[in-house]
Computed example of a mutant assay.
Amino acid sequence: MSPDGPRLDRTKLLAARFRAAQDRPYLATALYSLTVVESRDVSTMGVDRRWRCHVSPEFVDRLPVPQLAAVWIHEVAHLLRDHHGRADRLPADQQRDHHRVNVAQDCEINDDLVADRLPLPADRIEPATFGLPVGLLFEAYLPLLPAHVRGREAPDCGSGAHGVDRAWESGSTGGVSAVEAGAIRRETAHAIRAHVRSRGTIAAGWQRWAAQVLEPRVDWRRALSGAVREAAAWASGAVDYTYRRPSRRSGATRGVVLPSLRRPVPRVAIVVDTSGSMGDGQLAAALAEVAGVLRAVGVGGNRVTVLSCDAAVHVVRRVHTVGEVRLAGGGGTDMRVGIDAALRGRPHVVVVLTDGLTPWPAAPLESVRVIAGLIGAGAPQPPSWIASVTVDD
């Protein structure tokens, strides 16, 4: 016994981690990536962003090994689920109350651990504590928590959970980098999938988390916006000479009129696949998003042409708004026909909205950027020279 209290029983603590890794082998890599830091300033156990686990000696003495093993899993779950990164993306007013954020995060984790029959300490926080449903993310639990949660003794799992640096985290060395943390998450997700295939038993929350890590859903609106913006910026960066507005330097050259440089506003063609396999809802959403992007980059008026096409081009119309678009068709699919028709207007950017079940041009188009908005998660990919974005619900 030291003057300040008992020394950390590392043998007991590491035995608990070994038990956690033995019972949940898919979490072993993550558990053994944590660095133990003895701390008398933390009341239980807490983790920081660098995957250092700060441990109270009194807490280790107080809990039996099975409960310590469950707490190990709880703490590593904060890091695997990137709770600190997600907390950083919360609105500022929600970030400020980090204790409340921590409670919501514990609800997200502990419903899985309780379902997995882990012997968590009796004072654990879970959705049932507040009469809330199970299976939600902490961002969903946060606004559902009652007001009195601010007044109760809330947990403090460290900056590795709620994202706010704590005084007891300073001075620690070593740890895991952000790149290494990403690799640990992916390896753990693969281990979870392998465990499910071989044994088929694991909490649903862990399975959903693994699917999100290995098959992240991309915000197609943001991706499509970025692709169109990049192509429009590329077209706007093109310059050419024109005599419509003589160069200012012409005054210095008697009898010689010099051309000036012009920067063209990009012309955009939107080829819409109206074959029978297309869904109206997703198609309308994609059209609306493209319209918003074109307005944002200053492309409008008679610079936008929309072509309705299946195996033939049915409607070609220059539009000011998407509300003026007229779609027709419903037969087979060949977007090459629509792209060829679009090229007659000499566009800088061609956006093709299709389910991907179409042949494509055999070679890149000269001086034209092509973007494919692929409707549906299973849409076949176009050739590599075409920028593609999957448009999904």
Rank of each mutant, 00 (worst) to 15 (best):
N302F: 06
A286C: 15
F138G: 00
V239H: 15
E366A: 14
W234E: 11
A15D: 14
Q95R: 15
L353F: 06
V313T: 15
P6R: 12
H83I: 02
N102M: 14
V271W: 01
H99G: 15
A204M: 06
Q22A: 12
L224W: 05
G298C: 08
G331P: 07
W168L: 09
A379R: 09
A227M: 03
V315S: 12
D41A: 12
S275P: 00
A233M: 09
A291R: 03
A210K: 05
F138E: 04
L14C: 08
R10N: 08
R185V: 06
G276Y: 08
G5D: 09
A87C: 10
S39M: 07
R267L: 02
A284I: 08
G301N: 09
G85Q: 06
V351I: 13
R10D: 08
P121S: 12
V36P: 01
G292E: 04
V256D: 01
A296V: 02
W385D: 14
D88C: 08
V196M: 12
V213C: 02
T274I: 08
V306Q: 08
R7Q: 11
P364S: 10
G330F: 05
L31E: 08
L294C: 11
V391A: 11
V304L: 07
Q105M: 14
T44E: 01
S260P: 02
V304W: 07
G329Y: 02
M278G: 02
W385C: 13
L327T: 03
L214W: 12
V316P: 05
P347S: 10
L13I: 09
R193Q: 13
G301A: 10
A231G: 11
V316S: 15
S367W: 07
R40I: 11
L144C: 04
R222P: 00
R96T: 13
A161G: 13
W220L: 12
L118C: 12
V257C: 07
V315A: 11
A154I: 02
V42L: 05
I109D: 04
W51L: 04
R346I: 00
D111G: 06
A342V: 02
L327F: 09
L365M: 10
V60L: 07
A311Q: 14
A291F: 07
E230Y: 08
V316T: 15
